[in-house]
Design a protein around this nucleic acid. Structure first.
Lengths: 201, 201
DNA sequence: CCCAGAAACTTGACACTGTCAAGAACGATG
DNA sequence: CATCGTTCTTGACAGTGTCAAGTTTCTGGG
């Protein structure tokens, strides 16, 4: 179960056996993240998510329109937390290597979100919330890679940094790396990061 | 239609209205690749593949066991062609940048194969044919990145090169890059590749 | 030539999926 | 307390992968 009580207009109410759930939207997102974390995004079933949250099979569709709508919410949440993590790493250290490490760490700690975020065919790319969160992430990454100004969209240094870090994180979470890397990804990333010419001199 | 005639024991036979297809396995793989190219791997349906090849809905399962079996064949074929392309680029130029360019070009020209190859949850990773082809690709890439010897598996330079090139190719085919990059990926990769410290001095 | 037996494929069924329309239960507002 | 809109459920539908059983075709030995 995701939570045991819920607050409605100031009073705490037990969540069991109530018709109105309180925050079913939130619970469904959490259930979806859990399910994706266990079985991967391809095997995600709306009905399984509903069962996990203790509601009827059609409840998710009511809140999110369709399956892609639910994953859109997950992706948007992911991009928001992602932007937070990247911004924090940059303001704390001012070092791109730290931003890259935060990128990799996020992929590991939020694998379910991460696996959805960069698979655009799974969600509605035109959702405003999603686009805002995605833009935040992109801006944070560009800043970390030393790309500023209006033409930051097509900045070779930023694209190089993004490619490098994203490739590492993606291959890692997909299980394509040797065991030694999976055992200590932090160290591996530090060793591998030496070959990227960003944030130097 | 994938082909119009087929040769059986030396005689060419028209493929229509025959119970035995001749090379249905081949035709199903081609149909799957076509379908993935149009709608992406997540939306792939065995029944649609069967219809495309002009056979009954259960024919694919008979040849490949299950859906993952069909995708295993696609992935194995992909890794074989992939290894060919990387080996060719390396023997022709001896330059890692050329190997990287071949990596990116393969992802573009064989998007359907590529999208399956690096999504291990879609196929049977323990298939011998697949493992052999995958090992070939890995070896070719390591060689191109200047990693040799028995410990080539955990070689920081090779992992860095792989991460970089794979990240670029993956973000590109997934549609995460700005339009300017998608318009001329070759040039973009050349510009971006300057930030990788491999195959120098 | 013929006829088992194997191989290739089809047919039919099952449980499961996402989506939609209709209805029931509930909170809020008058 | 009555009404209204929201929240969620129920029931149905077409489509999916997979399995068992049946049918058609090829093969090889007499």
């Amino acid at each position: 179960m995701v939570f045991d009580t819920v607050k409605i207009r100031g009073t705490v109410v037990p969540v069991t056996d109530r018709y109105h759930h309180g925050d079913l939207r939130r619970a469904l997102i959490d259930a979806a993240v859990e399910a994706v974390g266990e079985t991967g995004p391809s095997a995600l079933s709306l009905r399984a998510v509903a069962k996990r949250a203790g509601v009827s099979h059609a409840a998710p569709a009511h809140h999110f329109g369709d399956k892609a709508g639910l994953l859109t919410a997950v992706a948007a949440e992911g991009f928001d937390r992602f932007a937070d993590a990247l911004e924090l790493a940059w303001t704390a250290t001012g070092d791109f290597k730290a931003v890259g490490a935060a990128y990799v760490r996020f992929a590991i700690d939020n694998r379910a979100h991460f696996e959805i975020m960069f698979r655009p065919e799974l969600f509605h790319g035109d959702d405003p919330d999603l686009q805002r969160a995605e833009a935040r992430s992109r801006a944070a990454l560009h800043r970390g890679a030393g790309a500023t100004g209006p033409d930051a969209d097509y900045n070779p240094a930023a694209l190089a940094a993004w490619s490098f870090v994203h490739g590492f994180a993606g291959l890692l979470v997909a299980g394509n790396f040797p065991q030694a890397v999976a055992d200590d990804p932090e160290a591996a990333f530090a060793a591998v990061g030496k070959y990227l010419r960003i944030g130097e001199e």
